[in-house]
Amino acid sequence: MAASQSTAVAVKPKSNLEAVREAMREEMARDPRVILMGEDVGVRGGVFQASAGLYDQFGNKRVIDTPLAESVIVGAAIGAAVAGLRPIAEIQFADFSHPAFDQIVNEAARVRYRSRNGWGCPLVIRAPFGGGVHGGLYHSQSVEAFYAHVPGLKVVAPSTPGDMKGLLKSAIRDDDPVVFFEHKGIYGGPREVIPEGDHLVPIGKADVKRPGEHVSVIAYGLMLHRCLQAAEDLAGEGISVEVLDLRTLRPLDTEAILATARKTGRVCVVYEDNKALGVGAEVSALIAEQALFDLDAPIMRVAGPEVPAMPYAPPLEEWFMPSAEGIAEALRHLATF
C-alpha cells in the first residue's frame, strides 16, 4: 500500500502516536544532527507522550524543553537549521502555531528562496491538529490551509500509522521546512502493523486507501477514517467508493487526484476545516481545470461550518465535524446524481 523501502513485516500493530515516536527515535539514532525542541517535549515526554523516552535516550542537549513561546520555538529551530542541525520543533497544538505564523511563513518558507539557495532551512514543525477531543476553540483547529497556501513549505497530514512513521522520517530527512500535522483524534487508533526497518513514505504522494468504481472521496487526517467507514457502509448498498488519502497537502499529488476523478467521474472532498477557501477548494479547482469533461456530477465538498472554530459542548462539537453518516449521505447523493 504505502511505498516502502522495506519488505520485512512486524507483527504488533501500532498506533499513530507510537509511529511518531518511533520515527523520531530512529531518525535521532541515525543522524546526530536531529534534535527535538518544544514545550514539555523533554522530561514530560510531550503532553501526548509523543516523545516519551527520547529525553532519557538522547539527553537534554538533543531533546530540549523550551520556554512556552511558539515564535522562538520555530525561530530558534530555524537558527539551528541554518547552522547545520535538523530540528524537529513541536507546537503543542496546531491552534498555537499562529503566534509562530510569521516565523513559519515569512522566515522558514522563504529562507532558501530569498537567499537564492544561499541558505537552506531543513526543519520539521510537528503539530497535533483537529477536533473530536473536546478541545474547544483552541485545541481543535484544522489550520492546514494557512500553511498549504505557502510555496516554500511542504505540508503533510497522514492518517495511518505506517504513513505517519514513513512520512515523518521523510520529513526529517527533507532539505526544506515541512509542517507535519498529526490528527490528535487518531493518535490512539486505529492501529496497524508498520513495516519494520527503514520505512519511508515519500512526501507528495497520495494513496488509494480503498479502491472503488462509482464515486471518489478524497480526504486526510481523521476524516479519512470516517470516509472509509462511509465507504464500508455504502458497499452494502451496492455503491463502490474509492477513498483517496491525500497524505501530503503541499505539494498536492495532482496525478492521483486527477486519476481518481477520471476513474469514477464523481468526486467528493471531505475535510474537517471550515469549507470556504480550504483544501477542498484547491482540489476541486484542480479537477475542474483539468478533468471537467470526465465528470458526471458536480464536485461536492463536505466540510466544517463557517464558524470561527469548534465549540466545546458535545452536541456542538458533534455538529461541527463531518460524520461518517453525513459523508455516506453525500456520497449516496453523488452516486445517483
Binding site: 530540549i64 522562538v72 525561530g75 530558534a76 537558527g79 539551528a80 547552522a83 542541525l85 530540528p87 515569512n106
Partner: peptide, 15 residues
C-alpha cells in the same frame, strides 16, 4: 525576526 534565529544558532553552536 532574526533574534530568535540568532538564539537558535547560538544553541546549535553549543550542541
Amino acid at each position: 525576526t532574526q533574534i530568535p534565529h540568532a538564539a537558535g544558532t547560538g544553541m546549535a553552536l553549543q550542541l
